[in-house]
Amino acid sequence: MASIFGHMTLGATLGKLLLPERRYVRYWVLAAACAFLPDIDVLGFKFHVAYASLWGHRGLTHSLLAAVMVASAVVGWHRLGHRAGPPLGRLWVLLFLATASHGVLDAMTTGGLGVAIFSPFVLERYFFGFCPIEVSPIGVRQFVGTTVWRVLQSEAIWVALPCAVLLTLQRLFSAQTAAVR
């Protein structure tokens, strides 16, 4: 898996790109949380859920169906309690992409059993042909020493740098658009 830092960086970046106004900063944080949420399945290790099972790590919670369900549930809840906020369709797209991005990053890592992106309809697990992201160990205790530096260096190159480029392009485009007006 990618680390919490990589997942949340991508989620927050998606938030800023899709809801660029500063008043939506709490939705950037929500997108970051949704980007990390699929790793809730690591709790299964405590209950002896097999890694390769539907409910195991990188299984159903990492699927596109789970991303649809998370986005729909959060937007539905938001609609009940809030009158103001971003357009619901745009919020749904943001939360779907943020949650789905988790499986995409994990499928680009150098380890694990792959990602059940089409679960529960297809149980096969996938990696992309291009896997430049160093796999992060599962658990805080293993995330130390040289391992953490390899993971974070990899994510700096393959996650943070592209996110920074996209945010810079957004800022330049916004500044140019404002100057034209």
Rank of each mutant, 00 (worst) to 15 (best):
K46Y: 08
L19G: 07
H78A: 07
R23T: 08
F96G: 05
L18S: 09
M1C: 08
M1I: 04
A2Q: 00
V135Q: 04
G6K: 01
R141S: 12
F173S: 13
G114Y: 00
I40R: 11
D106G: 12
A66G: 09
R150N: 12
H48K: 14
G56N: 05
G11R: 02
I157R: 15
M69C: 14
D41F: 13
L105Y: 05
G129S: 10
L10H: 06
A12G: 10
W149K: 13
R171Q: 08
G76W: 10
V151I: 04
G56T: 00
L64W: 10
W92P: 13
G129V: 00
T168K: 10
E155A: 05
A160V: 06
R90V: 07
L19D: 01
E155F: 04
L172C: 14
P86N: 05
Q153G: 15
L167I: 02
Y27S: 08
R125L: 02
L65N: 11
F118G: 13
H82D: 06
V68W: 12
G103K: 07
T177G: 09
V159Q: 01
T146S: 12
F143I: 03
A98M: 02
S174Q: 09
T61C: 10
S101T: 03
V25C: 12
K46L: 03
A2G: 08
A2S: 11
W92A: 08
L172H: 15
W28I: 04
W28R: 11
D106Q: 08
A66M: 12
A2N: 06
G59T: 01
Y24R: 09
E124D: 14
I40P: 13
E134D: 07
I138H: 07
S63F: 05
V151A: 06
I4Q: 10
S72A: 11
R22K: 10
M108N: 09
L88I: 02
R79M: 01
G15S: 07
F47K: 08
I117Y: 15
I4G: 15
F45I: 07
